[in-house]
Design a binder for these strands. Structure first.
Length: 591
RNA sequence: GGUCCCGUAGCUCAGCUGGAUAGAGCAUCUGCCUUCUAAGCAGACGGCCACACGUUCGAAUCGUGUCGGGAUCACCA
């Protein structure tokens, strides 16, 4: 039981003894302007007790001061009972944190969760929007693990379909046999180049047809290039050797490119599914649904489900000609995923433009009686917009992931060199640091915003290194480490338990914040919100910085005080490292 | 048009299981580096929390409606 829970129990007991009231007690942190750590709001008691709020507050405060060994003092402002804690409870709280290396992390709960994210298309390189997806997926995986879940990270690669054929056709027509090696272009970028190429030529054909008197609609449907792509898709599905060979070759290039990017941004998967393997799945589920009467057949043989009871519409699950639609294969892969991993939960990190799709998918699974249906969650997130509007790969108006990371790394290098604090680093150490800072900046930037909100990225203003940013938190960690190195150099041993030291308010602020770490992790997991962890890390770093400028650690004459501060800041550094770790961000020893 | 999401300072965002005088960062302005890293700290400036009504002792937070922005409603994925 932590301090807050104990205090709540004491208040509950007090309510019982004083007023014979049985009530759950909820505490809130006391506002900065008043003395106290926790505040209990007495307004709700006014009616039943028929006493004024200050009266209730005072008698409750008096009782707690006398009977609770946690409460040293109290004050009442209107209906707010502010409780000042005994100093030794701060040390109880702190010592518990100090002695627990895994403070904040829950024990394994023996249950599995599958997190699917990234899910790239193999016709274009990753852009800023994909980065948001990757970082959200990576971070929520880490957060769920910290909440005790056994996490499997899965990636479903969209490696087939008409859009892939578009790149392939364009390459066949205009590629002149070039390869990533011959062109000196990363494989995913090379494929992307031909995807854009396709779109350009396709649009030119449409314009020609329209000029020749076709309607725009017809032109779009009948442009020779599109026909070629559709033919190629058909050939691919028939297993045409030449087409499959080209498909394998080009996808191979793309995977090499993706792997390089994933390695650079520090994202990994436990399991990769390929849509070329799974796109035919789901038809047996359609049969099952027809047999159980969950689905119904129309005259043209197409299969549907009625979801009007769920507030949704009728939805097609299989075409009249027996071929799959998107949801068909998703039914199949969902079953497959739960069969493969026997997990309790599955999470899909997918943009909010698919909100409706997932509502439908989950509703169908429920109607089919899948036991896992309630464990399905769509972690929906908003698009990353540019000042000019939406990013469009076909039109080339995207912020490329590789380019962005490279630019940020250059900025980190420049900013760091200006400051001249790491002049003794080897080239490799320096490069390592620049990468760490660049990724810290980008990841933090994308994760600090609540996932479901769409966010704006302004390339001109770019990503900052000051203020509420990843590098600021990394910097805070490095500053603490610098002090700890100094202490080690002087042979100072940090004590394992602390007691009886008069506390400065910024010190108790820090202890209080540290004590909240477990509930922050819990909340982030419950809400699927890495932003909760990001905001916490910033809050902690900010509070430390304030303490740092007000008090000195190593120059403190009272050695007991000094040693306490060393212990305190060591836990702060550890907690910053853990919190940033949950965002997939590393923190440096020096910067 | 139906459904879903969003609307908080000039800009980017916290806060939303109802609680006190709504917080940060950026930008603008003032101070602070001979003491542990100034990527920092302290301060100033900046708000009808889109609007209206309702529930409540109490609403940025909950409910209803309006307005504004976005997404979606394909035998595309």
């Amino acid at each position: 039981m932590n301090t807050e829970q104990k205090l709540a129990a004491d208040i509950k007991q007090a309510l019982h003894s004083l007023f014979e009231v049985e009530q759950e007690v909820i505490l809130q942190p006391t506002r900065k302007d008043f003395a106290g750590t926790y505040t209990y709001v007495v307004f709700p008691l006014v009616k039943s007790l028929k006493k004024s709020p200050p009266e209730i507050g005072a008698s409750l405060g008096e009782y707690l001061k006398a009977n609770s060994d946690l409460v040293a003092d109290y004050n009442v402002v209107q209906g707010f009972l502010n409780l000042v804690l005994e100093e030794n409870t701060w040390f109880d709280t702190f010592n518990a944190i100090l002695s627990d290396e895994n403070f904040g992390f829950a024990k394994a709960n023996g249950k599995g969760v599958l997190v699917e994210f990234s899910s790239p298309n193999t016709n274009k390189p990753l852009h800023l929007g994909h980065l948001r997806n990757n970082f959200l997926g990576d971070s929520i995986s880490r957060i769920l693990k910290a909440n005790g879940w056994d996490v499997t990270r899965a990636c479903l690669v969209n490696d087939r379909g008409i859009h892939i054929c578009k790149s392939m056709i364009a390459y066949q027509l205009f590629g002149k046999g070039e390869t990533p090696e011959s062109a000196g272009i990363k494989g995913d970028h090379l494929a992307g180049k031909y995807y854009v190429e396709f779109d350009k030529s396709y649009k030119a054909e449409i314009n020609e047809l329209v000029a020749a008197g076709e309607t725009e609609e017809n032109a779009k449907k009948n442009a020779p290039l599109l026909k070629k792509a559709q033919e190629m898709l058909l050939k691919w599905e028939q297993g045409d050797a030449a087409v499959v060979e080209l498909w394998k070759r080009m996808n191979g290039w793309v995977y090499d490119g993706f792997n390089a990017t994933y390695r650079k941004i520090g994202v990994e998967f436990d399991k990769t599914y390929y849509e070329s393997d799974t796109y035919l799945l789901g038809k047996d589920i359609v049969e099952e649904g027809l047999a159980t009467g969950v689905f119904y057949k129309k005259d043209d043989n197409s299969v549907w489900i009625d979801l009007t009871e769920e507030g949704l519409d009728h939805k097609l699950v299989l075409r009249g000609d027996g071929t799959s639609v998107y949801i068909t294969q998703d039914l199949g892969t969902t079953d497959l995923k739960f069969k493969d991993f026997h997990s309790e939960k599955a999470i899909w990190v997918v943009g909010n433009e698919q909100d409706y799709h997932f509502q439908v998918l989950f509703a169908i699974m429920k109607k089919l009686g899948r036991s896992y249906a309630d464990g399905c969650y769509h972690m929906s997130y908003g698009m990353v917009d540019l000042p000019s509007g939406k990013m469009k790969s076909r039109e080339g108006t995207v912020v490329d992931a590789d380019e962005l990371v490279a630019e940020m790394t250059a900025t980190a290098a420049e900013t760091t060199k200006e400051r001249g604090k790491i002049d003794d680093f080897t080239a490799e150490e320096a490069e390592n640091l620049f990468q760490m800072l660049a990724l810290g900046a980008v990841k933090y930037f994308l994760l600090k915003v609540e996932p479901k909100k769409r966010m704006l990225f302004n390339p001109q203003e770019s990503i900052d290194f000051q203020g509420n940013t990843g590098p600021f938190i990394q910097y805070t960690h490095a500053r603490i480490k610098s002090i700890l190195r100094k202490a080690t150099a002087e042979g100072i041993e940090i004590p394992e338990t602390i007691a009886g030291i008069p506390l400065e308010s910024s010190e108790s602020d820090l202890i209080f914040l540290l004590s909240e770490f477990p509930s922050v992790i819990r909340k982030a997991g419950d809400d699927y919100a890495p932003s909760t962890v990001a905001n916490y890390a910033y809050d902690l770093a900010k509070t430390f910085s304030s303490f740092y400028s007000e008090f000195s650690v190593m120059n403190e004459a009272d050695t007991a005080k000094r040693d306490f501060r060393l212990a305190l800041i060591r836990v702060v550094a550890d907690t910053l490292k853990k919190a940033m770790g949950l965002l997939g961000v590393e923190v440096p020893e020096r910067m």
